[in-house]
């Protein structure tokens, strides 16, 4: 399964939406989680539609629009979204209304917007796109499942697919996840820091003038032991007829916390340049969507951003990136991305 990336855009806690200043100014967050650095939406989305949108929808719609503009696609052949927690802000609003009004008269908008598939639905409504519309919500593999569906759509003959991943944080979500020791709630915690954002792509069946990178292969697997990682990576490289020396950069979802899986990967690929992406995106169920976006941008710009390089040196041509991520040691991902031949 292969798909060409002809457009992509992302909103993250850093400056990643404005391609002109991509990761140029580093945003220092003083909060215990990383809030998205959002653009002026009114310049991108019709204000009449904007008034009903919560943050996750705004982030997704803006990213989707920009990816489509880059790819010069007006109506995608499919809209596929992965989200771990969906529209949390509106869910909270709706639940609060149920309590405040003692299960009485409730606002329809908060209910309509509270469902996970609101993002894909909203994009389709705005585009008047009647094509395949699907939302995957499967914890740390929400984006990966969406990506696999997108690649299957291409394999079945669809010309181009809009696919993305998005998650938002609210203070309540952060507090709840912190209270079960899932994420860091203060700077002393040796736990991952929660982040939020959206990353969208236009994947095309064939390479075209806009294509700048390709997803060569991807695999998602669950609950491996640390010792299994080496075998999984070797197997993945083998099936793509590659050796570790053929990889120009390993991009990992390391989140700054001691982690046997990433240590094993680092040890296996110690001769390669290694970069990270969760210092930009923070941890979330769909952080890997940004990882894929960053890999695509690096391949396009032929640049490894200074703030991402962890070890090794990058020099020369950047032809292949191997992305490795896992969410809480449960949901693991390997994706091979390559530069498009000019």
């Amino acid at each position: 399964m292969k798909g060409y990336i002809s457009g992509t855009a992302a909103i993250t806690p850093q400056h990643t939406f404005d391609t002109g200043r991509y990761l140029e100014e580093w945003v220092d967050h003083q909060t215990s989680y990383l809030s998205a650095t959002e653009p002026a939406y009114r310049e991108i989305i019709d204000p009449k539609l904007l008034r009903r949108m919560s943050r996750i929808i705004k982030m997704s719609v803006a990213s989707a629009y920009k990816a489509m503009q880059m790819a010069k696609v007006e109506i995608p052949g499919a809209v596929i979204v992965g989200t771990g927690l969906g529209c949390v802000q509106d869910t909270e609003k709706f639940l609060k209304e149920i309590i405040d009004n003692e299960e009485g008269i409730l606002s329809p908008t908060a209910f309509i917007q509270s469902t996970h598939n609101t993002i894909a639905g909203q994009i389709a409504l705005m585009l008047q796109c009647p094509n395949h519309n699907f939302t995957f919500s499967n914890r740390g593999h929400s984006f990966e499942n969406a990506l696999e569906d997108a690649l299957l759509q291409l394999q079945e003959g669809v010309e181009h697919v809009l696919v993305g991943g998005a998650d938002e944080i609210t203070p309540i979500v952060h507090e709840l996840m912190g209270s079960i020791r899932c994420v860091s709630i203060n700077q002393e915690d040796q736990l991952s820091v929660l982040g939020e954002g959206a990353a969208f792509f236009i994947l095309t069946k064939d390479q075209n003038e806009q294509s700048f990178a390709a997803i060569e292969d991807t695999v998602a697997f669950n609950n491996p032991l640390v010792d299994d990682v080496r075998g999984k990576v070797v197997q993945f490289l083998d099936r793509n007829e590659l050796a570790s020396a053929d990889i120009d950069l390993v991009l990992m979802g390391h989140n700054g916390v001691a982690d046997g899986f990433f240590d094993a990967m680092g040890d296996l690929m110690k001769e390669n340049a290694i970069a990270q992406f969760k210092n930009i995106s923070g941890e979330s169920f769909t952080a890997s969507a940004y990882g894929h976006h960053l890999a695509a941008v690096m391949l396009q710009k032929q640049q490894v951003f200074q703030n991402t390089l962890v070890s090794g040196k990058f020099g020369g041509s950047l032809d292949r990136i191997l992305l490795y991520n896992h969410y809480k040691g449960v949901n693991h991902t390997l994706t091979l991305l390559s530069k498009c031949p000019s």
């Binding site: 009449k48 008269i105 606002s107 329809p108």
Partner: peptide
Amino acid sequence: VGLDSIDALELIVLLER
């Protein structure tokens, strides 16, 4: 003002509440 059908539902809720 340019309101739509979802706004009408919100107005029904407003009047009742």
